[in-house]
Amino acid sequence: MKNRSLLIFISALLCVSAIVFAAVYAACCSEKQSTFWVMDTISTVKVKGPGARAAAEKAEEITRNLDSSLLSRHSESSLTYRINKNAGGKVPAEYAKYIQTMLEVYEKSSGAFDFTLGNVSDLWGIGTDNERVPSDEELKEALSSAGADKIKVGDGEISFPEGVAVDFGASGKGIALDEISNSFKDCKINRAVVSVGGSVMLYGKGDFTVGIKNPGGEGYMAVLNLGSSFVSTSGSYERYFEKDGVRYHHILDPETGRPVSNGLVSVTIISGSGALSDALSTACFVLGTEKGMELCRAFGCEGVFIDGGGTVYVTDGAAGMLEITDSGYHLEGR
């Protein structure tokens, strides 16, 4: 009889330990990964923690909602579509905030980041069936009515002249990441890595590694070692078409309406805000290496600039994070 009770005691002890161990393991290490298509690009969510599943679902929901109801330029249910059509209108507070952030980047970059070139982009039709090289006159006409300086925003309302087409193409992904980051604060998760079309959010304690895509080919050519932050890249290799042997990419110079050609092929920005890293990556690409680095400093962000010859330029902070892993690229000056 005592034999059995001891046996039961020991088995119970083992079971309890196993359960406790499994519970602790599940709580700390439960992980959820999901992939979905939104904003015309692919997104992946990797979350670790007890609330992983809920958080991953939330991330997808937020991104989809943001795109379809606020930021998309083509979806008729979207606010952006409607205010572009009506040259303005009533907007909720957070939307006004997005616009204001973009205006700040526009001003500090001396107009290099102009998010009102929607109509100009449409002329090129990159990514649609109507890819073409517009004529000088077409570009001149579209440009003259565009311009972020023409936007008036405040008090829940936005207004601008006809011809201005607010375009969140260069910042929408970062905005989504900011919203996701905010919502994660209420979820019980320890660590998350979310990528929306190549704009990355690193959330949680610890160190992360982010690879920078090789502009000239497959895989990644360098790795960034950093803590929680947002990383965005603008590159001439992402969206483009080729005609008569010339490559036309999607990052337009606000002055000419043509693709920027200053030698840069990729700019990566690291900052504490998704919208900022997204917008700055485009702004710095347009500005070129020297002015781009100045802009980074003005915003307190770090940047990695890569030119067509394989030279990599970095801001001071980025130098400590960067590890080039492809021998085809070399760091300038250090």
Partner: peptide, 8 residues
Amino acid sequence: SGPDAITY
């Protein structure tokens, strides 16, 4: 296996 994410 490799970086947490790739930025592009």
